[in-house]
Amino acid sequence: MTTTSIRVAETPLVLYALRRADDALVLGHRLSEWCGHAPALEEDMALANIGLDLLGQARSLYGYAAEVEAAGHNEDDYAFHRDAPQYRNLLVAELPNGDFARTILRQFFYAAFADLYWRAMMASPHSTLAAIAAKSEKETAYHLRHSAEWVIRLGDGTEESHRRAADAVAYLWPYTGEMFEADAAERALIDAGTVLDPASFRDAWDKTVSDILAEATLEKPAAGWMQQGGRSGRHSEHLGHLLAVMQSVPRAIPGASW
């Protein structure tokens, strides 16, 4: 049985919130897939903590989107009743976990950006967004530290871990450009001073990434073509499968409370 999805009035601020909420939800969902399967019990705890933080961020941001959209939608409507083309997350978030190296490098690349972004957003004149940023910033600072420490150990560990880490860097690199992009809708918000221009964090991000990769004895890839599309709903093949699993129960019994 299928249910029709909700229609969202994607005004700039709603779109902005959904984009970041989707990043957090999709990435949090991916991390939750590790639960019970991590390389060590202590890491199972860590990945679950990060997943929970991201789920919390997603919920705050969906809550905010609901408020702004004012169409009677709630967090679960957005999460479980939008199809893949309506999702607005970065492509990097929806990629399969792969091995621990790929998961850690993905977390590192994303957290290195999110940490800068949320810290700066704490000063946003928009009080709700500033509050969300303040909470998220503390969490993301830890995600960055956790993933960076592992990047170093994997890169500068054994031959095998180095190879896997290098493969992960190469695989993920083309997906690291999208986080700095802003389209016309977001540009309007940036010009109004409500949100920050993600491109303004590129240099700082690059420095963090360069420093950690160097310490990890990993090569930073040369500049090249960057994959895009997630922000406007043009996703990889992976998101469809992810959502098919994630949304299966509520879609099977429409209108039910869980």
Binding site: E42, M45, A46, N49, Y142, R145, H146, E149, R153
Partner: peptide
Amino acid sequence: TLALQAARDV
């Protein structure tokens, strides 16, 4: 370092 992180997480 990992011990401190793990202690925080556990």
